[in-house]
Design a protein around this nucleic acid. Structure first.
Length: 613
RNA sequence: GGUCCCGUAGUGCAGCGGCCAAGCAUACCUCCCUGUCAAGGAGGAGAUCGCCGGUUCGAAUCCGGUCGGGACCGCCA
């Protein structure tokens, strides 16, 4: 319907051959300016907007570089003008004509080419377009599934296009920076060996070895360490990492990391390198200001005490206040049971929130509940008077000690949580962030980095009498803590370091274990049998027999960094072709069923969960 | 595995038991219009309110289920 008839009608004599491309561009749509007045140029691009005055027709011509206004004048070029009447949004066209100065009073300062326009002599329609399913020339919110289905149209929009281009420029900057610092970019395999622990692996069946599977790498961890043993000295890669876990707003099943490993280094070398790189990137690619000079370092313990999380948002204070020591044997059951069972009682103060309605404070309390706490107790202060349900349950002198430590001022509201350590911290971390949101303390124009160090090497597996690693099984032990492994393994600290930015973990790494005996001991502590160690890590351990340089590295989440630079909370905004919350690619409709013969070749049979057939 | 939110012309929203065979904006189509730049003016077409079932005299509206998308918990070394 669309085109043919209409085109033939208006072009009876001139032969329009779709696909024959004669007007090849001489400039892009963002470069022409006053200097070009008087020259004849050719532009190619998409019709961004049209303004048809009946007489004059104005078209904003768009390519990825920008916009140029082109004009069709019926008196000067009646043929082209008539043809232009049929142009619609998103048609792809080629035009040739003269660059002219815009009449005074019609200059558009908001675009780079706003002082000139192209007076079209000849128009060639390269491709027509249906009316797009959503606006491309307006930044209106559109249903995300629709955008993903038509991702090629979505990416025509300014914001999306800019995000993708910024991503390219940041990655290019990383490559150049590391190349200058003698790093070698090495590609590691995408089909690797599945290893236990960590996230769930994506598996790829082997055709040649029935019943066996490759895994997609969760990170190139072992490979990069082998490259150090190989003597590469400094390695990096823009690496894909795959984890078959449920996505979130800031988490996808395939993400990209800047993967780095260095030999003959200790913590400060790796951290210094990243610090240098990241501060440069922020300076180069954003107009956000870095809150602290350089990047402060916090111990894991400090972070947990003061913020209740190992990824604190340091754009604002609101530090947690520990009340445990003054809240034992108060006669108030919630407190006494908590202290009796080694729990803790902590608080956060929301400045100026004492006048909040029940509904408003409930938002904070609900946040505590979402994180597993039973609730939160409020203490409000107005005009020197305190208002709290606590007063009913505890003695005045204890209450006075509490408010003294909380240092409330008039108008402040404190929220107190009593529970086991993990829960109290999680609840108050949540409340702290909610309060900051409410008070708009999380400035979109600020960047607050920090390093977290001195993580525990090992962790208890929740609900089991078993240990797991808190970073990865190759993470080094803080010098001197080796003997703790035999006495009190949970107290041993690691040589891990995480980079946190605005409350989000943007990277992490460690100095590695390079001693075979120690590495084996770690695997044993994690509960692996001799056979399992051999089966899963044998080749790596064998490499340790042949001269291992001390080494360490880091993996930086590139998507997370881009989210910050692009000022978005949605990781899919910085990925060209992202997947949905249940792992689908709506543009391609993947995953999809495959043919019986494909399955047969892979020695795979689909079993119905219900019937078992 | 679980909790919550959303689904109404192409798009974005309103309507939340009868006044709705559904309203607004914009896009789309036709006509008018020579300096616009989110051009303007006049007119027009376009939706069985995601789907299935139930409650009711009556359902876009209430309930149950289901599908699609999102946020979160679990999970994510």
């Amino acid at each position: 319907m669309l085109g043919a008839a209409r085109l033939h009608r208006i072009m009876p004599f001139r032969c329009l051959v779709i696909g024959r491309f004669t007007l090849k561009r001489t400039h892009n749509c963002n470069v022409l300016n006053k200097d070009d007045i008087g020259s004849t140029v050719i532009l190619n691009g998409w019709v961004h907007r049209r303004r048809d005055h009946g007489g004059l027709i104005f078209i904003d011509l768009r390519d990825r570089y920008g916009l140029t206004q082109i004009v069709f004048n019926p008196e000067l070029y009646p043929y082209s003008h008539e043809m232009a009447g049929d142009l619609r949004v998103e048609y792809v066209i080629a035009v040739t004509g003269l660059i002219v100065e815009r009449p005074s009073g019609t200059i558009n300062e908001s675009i780079a080419t706003g002082h000139i326009e192209l007076l079209v002599q000849e128009l060639q329609i390269l491709s027509e377009s249906k009316t797009p399913p959503f606006y491309i020339n307006e930044q209106q919110d559109v249903d995300e599934s629709l955008r993903l289905r038509y991702r090629y149209l979505d990416l025509r929009r300014d914001k999306q296009r800019d995000n993708i281009i910024l991503r390219h420029r940041v990655v290019k900057f990383m490559r150049d920076f590391l190349d200058t610092a003698e790093f070698v970019e090495v590609e590691t395999p995408i089909l690797v060996k599945s290893t236990p622990e960590g996230a769930r692996d994506f598996l790829v069946p082997s055709r040649l070895r029935p019943g066996q599977f490759y895994a997609l790498p969760q990170s190139p961890q072992q490979m990069k360490q082998l490259l150090m043993i190989a003597g590469l000295d400094r390695y990096f890669q823009i690496a894909r990492a795959f984890r078959d876990e449920d996505p979130r707003a800031d988490r996808v099943i395939e993400h990209t990391q800047l993967d780095i490993e260095m030999s003959f280094v200790e913590e400060s070398d790796v951290m210094g390198l990243i610090e240098n790189l990241y501060l440069k990137i922020v300076a180069e690619f954003s107009d956000m200001s870095v809150v602290n000079d350089g990047i402060p370092q916090l111990s894991y313990e400090d972070a947990m005490d003061r913020y209740g999380t190992d990824r604190p948002d340091l754009r604002f204070g609101l530090e947690l206040i520990d009340l445990t020591d003054i809240c034992s044997a108060t006669g108030f059951r919630a407190f006494d049971e908590t202290t009796a069972s080694d729990g803790i009682i902590k608080a956060v103060v929301a400045p100026g929130c004492s006048g909040y309605s029940r509904k408003q404070t409930d938002v904070f309390i609900e946040e505590a509940r979402n994180n597993g706490a039973k609730g939160a107790i409020t203490v409000a202060r107005y005009e020197g008077q305190y208002n709290s349900s606590l007063q009913k349950f505890i003695d005045d002198d204890v209450f006075n000690k509490i408010v003294e430590r909380l240092r409330l001022e008039d108008g402040d509201l404190a929220l107190i949580v009593a529970d086991e350590v993990r829960v109290t911290n999680a609840a108050l971390d949540g409340i702290r962030r909610k309060v900051a949101d409410q008070l708009e303390l999380r400035s979109p124009d600020e960047i607050a980095f920090c390093w977290i160090k001195d993580f525990p090497l090992l962790d208890k597996v929740e609900g089991q009498d078993r240990l797991t690693f808190s970073h990865n099984p190759f993470c080094g032990i803080r010098p001197g803590d080796e003997t703790l492994l035999e006495v009190d393994p949970l107290c041993a600290k690691s040589r891990q370091y995480d980079l946190v930015c605005n409350g989000s973990e943007v990277g992490g790494g460690s100095i590695r274990i390079t001693n075979e005996g120690l590495q084996r001991r770690i695997f044993e502590l994690l509960g692996y049998s001799e056979d399992e160690i051999e089966h899963n890590f044998g080749s790596m351990l064998q490499a340790f027999d042949f001269g291992v340089p001390p080494h360490g590295g880091i993996a930086m989440g590139i998507d997370r960094l881009l989210m910050i630079l692009c000022r978005t909370d949605n990781i899919r905004e910085v990925v060209a072709f992202p997947k949905t919350q249940d792992g689908q690619d709506l543009a391609q409709a993947a995953p999809s069923a495959v043919t019986e013969s494909q399955l047969a070749e892979l020695h795979i049979r689909i079993v119905d969960k219900e019937s078992g057939n």
